[in-house]
Design a protein around this nucleic acid. Structure first.
Length: 736
DNA sequence: AGAACTATGTTTTTT
DNA sequence: ACATAGTTCT
């Protein structure tokens, strides 16, 4: 795949394999949306209701009406989704669809800022930083701001990042967020203000732009520059947006500004599938859309074409429990199908074995590998399963989890390319200098303080006088940089020079495991070979980092591979057979999810996972999970499953084997003389009865209403409604 | 003083 | 797999 310019976002050259989709595939409501004349259209569509198909048909319809493809902007959630949609559109019309402009919001922002950025007065030589880089900046600042030290407890980088982007995306003050979600962090508010100010200054000084900046500057371009705003909104006469529930306030504002003169916007979304609020998405954007665009035609798609009735009954039952009442309910005309199956294994290994056995059986009976997917909440939940698949020689593809560019050795190698594009990128310079023996953080800072002040950092670096201890390595580095700037080099050629320099350094730094890491470098080499210009490659790796293939099997089978995926990465996809694993309390919902908004989002996440299934759905959980301190702990069914009427599924339970794992001991794994355990034992002995007043650390005060089972109590909480709690885990206090 | 080494901790989800 | 804190080496 050649990527010569930024306009070429959709360069997907797959041959047309499948037969064209029949136009009769649309129902009346879909057809109305796809062929609606002009003006704003909001399509509220349920899972599996063909919302993407409707959007594709609208695109094809517009082109057929003589609208030039270049004047259509298609905004999607992932680059992959955009490519998929354009591919489908070419089957309906012709190749001209490929001239449609767009992709993800961020990639499109990048493209427009490179073209029109001068209207805002900034030079085109910026580089895009990802989450890892942003954390790197905070690391650098933490020591310079004196925020580290003995006994200084500081919120994790992740929380700082969330606060920085959350404050931006939600257009709400930092204080609001801190006090609502992170009560214990209020003491850090001043430190945090200082970090945020320095963070923004650092980015400005070094030509760096983070994901939020891309959106903010796009919005500024449209709102603050009369000239650029008019040019852009004139250029794009039709705006199509998929997955609108995952947009944040700035993105909604961008859509509004893009269509300021024509209102030709169609957005498609499902409020019940909103799973990205943690990064600022706000599904109320859907509800606000008709106010933003007066005269909006609202179309609901409530018929599901994907799943069988038993699956739909169960998924409807999951979302029915949500506190928020959603705008539609789904039905299907598909009859028959099997009830979903709930399986619990005694251990994680047993859960993994069940999945591998079932997959093997399904494949034997003719289901292709590619029609089976295993979904989970967090990347590491599939480790046991990956081991089991590996030991049986079964090939799989893992999506989500670690990205190729997240490992240190790849960042090292890419740093050289990044400074070529943006010589003021001190973050990358820092990485490069730290690789030198005898050069640590202090020395690197000293060098950079001199170099980054000048107009030509390369020249300043060449002129720098190295200390004898690291002179040799430094001279080698300067040599490399000089050669890299030589004329006529392709990105691939430049990368080869870098590898030649980096290899000895690499083998020294990663002496224990460099052969394993070398595969990643080869993968990057293969990717970069397809690029004609370096800026595009650097942008792409920041905007859409490729997945690492290092843990892939040696011989990929011909007939495609089984998919393992986080639920977030499975968005918008579908398979005949879907397994959702790890549905144990403490794993799903995520154990840090607070009651309220976050808990509800976890529920929608399970809804998204379960609605990916077309024919058969398996929900599994282990009755024993590994805690962070590597101890085994007893686990029970996820509360989301517990709420479902058991008549809606089959239940299979693997009996606990006698001996090692049997009896109460397995509940706690290895004996632990710590205080926490003995407290639990005490609380388990307390007799609860209806009417007792209790206090829970998170849910607050409540009253026991019933005892639904052994070691279970149902409690009506004053602020959080009815909950069933397990006495082994709930830290309940009795109030007299 | 600054680099290098060692022990220990933590790890949601992602454009 | 990495970051951090504390320790030892130069």
């Amino acid at each position: 795949m050649k990527k010569e310019s930024h306009d070429d976002i959709f360069s997907d050259n797959r041959p047309l394999g499948e037969s064209p989709v029949s136009r009769k595939a649309l129902n009346e409501a879909q057809y109305a949306a796809a062929t609606h004349d002009n003006g704003p259209i909001l399509v509220i569509a349920g899972a599996g209701s063909g919302k993407t198909r409707t959007l594709v048909y609208r695109m094809a319809h517009l082109i057929e009406q003589g609208i030039p493809p270049e004047s259509i902007m298609l905004l999607t959630f992932t680059r992959r989704a955009a490519q998929e949609m354009l591919y489908r559109a070419t089957q309906l019309t012709d190749q001209s669809c490929r001239r449609v402009i767009g992709g993800t919001f961020h990639a499109t922002a990048n493209m427009l800022l490179r073209q029109y950025g001068e209207y805002l007065g900034f030079p085109p030589g910026f580089t895009i930083i990802d989450r890892g880089d942003a954390e790197g900046i905070i690391n650098l600042m933490k020591s310079s701001l004196g925020l580290t030290g003995k006994g200084k407890r500081f919120p994790s980088k992740r929380i700082i990042m969330n606060l920085i982007s959350g404050a931006v995306n939600k257009s709400r003050s930092l204080e609001d967020l801190v006090f609502e979600n992170h009560l214990h962090l209020s003491e850090f508010v001043n430190d945090f203000h200082s970090i945020r100010d320095h963070y923004n200054q650092f980015k400005l000084d070094h030509g760096l732009m983070d994901y939020d900046d891309l959106l903010i500057n796009w919005q500024r371009l449209l709102a603050e520059s009369e000239e650029a705003g008019a040019l852009i909104s004139n250029r794009f006469q039709y705006i199509l947006v998929d997955e609108y529930q995952d947009t944040n306030l700035i993105q909604a504002e961008i859509v509004r500004l893009l269509a300021r003169d024509h209102d030709n916007v169609m957005v498609v979304g499902d409020d019940a599938q909103s799973i990205y609020s943690f990064r600022g998405a706000d599904f109320y954007n859907i509800m606000r859309f008709p106010d933003q665009f007066p005269g909006t035609q609202v179309i609901k798609l409530e018929q599901n074409y994907r799943s069988t009735q038993p699956i739909l009954s169960l998924t409807n039952s999951i979302i029915d429990q949500a506190e928020e009442k959603f705008t539609k309910s789904l039905f299907t005309e598909e009859k028959g199908g099997e009830r979903p199956e709930v399986f619990s294994g005694a251990t994680e290994a047993a859960e993994a074995r069940f999945i591998v056995d079932t997959v093997a059986k399904l494949v034997e009976n003719g289901t292709p590998n590619t029609e089976i997917a295993v979904l989970f909440r967090s990347g590491f939940h599939s480790y046991k399963l990956e081991m089991e698949l590996g030991s049986r020689g079964l090939d799989f593809e893992k999506r989500g989890g670690l990205k190729l560019t997240e490992s240190a050795h790849i960042k090292d190698a890419l740093s050289f390319l990044r400074v070529l594009v943006n010589p003021w990128d001190n973050l990358s310079w820092n990485r490069i200098l730290l690789q030198l023996d005898k050069v640590g953080p202090k020395t690197a800072q000293k060098i950079l303080a001199v170099a980054s002040e000048t107009d030509d950092p390369f020249a300043a670096l060449s002129a720098y006088k190295p200390a004898p201890g690291w002179k040799q390595g430094f001279t080698r580095l300067i040599e490399l940089l000089t050669r890299l700037q030589g004329p006529g080099l392709t990105p691939g050629g430049q990368f080869d020079l870098i590898l030649e320099y980096y290899n000895p350094v690499f083998e020294k730094i990663y002496a224990d495991d460099y052969p394993k890491r070398r595969k990643d470098l080869d993968q990057v080499r293969a990717l970069i070979g397809g690029y004609g210009d370096l800026q595009s490659f650097v942008d792409d790796t920041a905007l859409d980092p490729p997945e690492s293939e290092a843990n892939r099997q040696e011989s990929p089978s011909e007939d495609g591979r089984l998919i393992l995926s986080t639920i977030h990465s499975a968005k918008g996809l579908e398979w005949e057979i879907v397994f959702v694993i790890g549905l144990a309390e403490g794993r799903f919902p995520h154990q840090n999810a607070l009651p309220g908004e976050q808990y509800e989002e976890e529920r929608r996440l399970l809804y998204v996972a379960a609605t990916r299934a077309k024919k058969q759905l398996f929900l599994t959980y282990p009755r024993q999970i590994m805690t962070t301190d590597r101890k085994l702990r007893h686990a029970v069914m996820s509360p989301f499953l517990r709420e479902i009427n058991p008549g809606l599924y089959h239940q299979k339970k693997q009996p606990a084997p006698t001996g090692y794992f049997s009896s109460a001991q397995s509940d706690f794994g290895l004996p632990d003389p710590g205080g926490a355990r003995s407290k639990k034992t005490v609380s388990a002995r307390i007799e609860y009865s209806p009417g007792m007043a209790v206090q829970h650390p998170i849910f607050g005060p409540g009253t026991v209403t019933s005892i639904p089972g052994p070691r279970r109590v149902e409690i009506a909480f004053d602020r959080h409604g009815n909950k069933i709690l397990h006495l082994d885990y709930a830290k309940l206090e009795i109030i007299d």
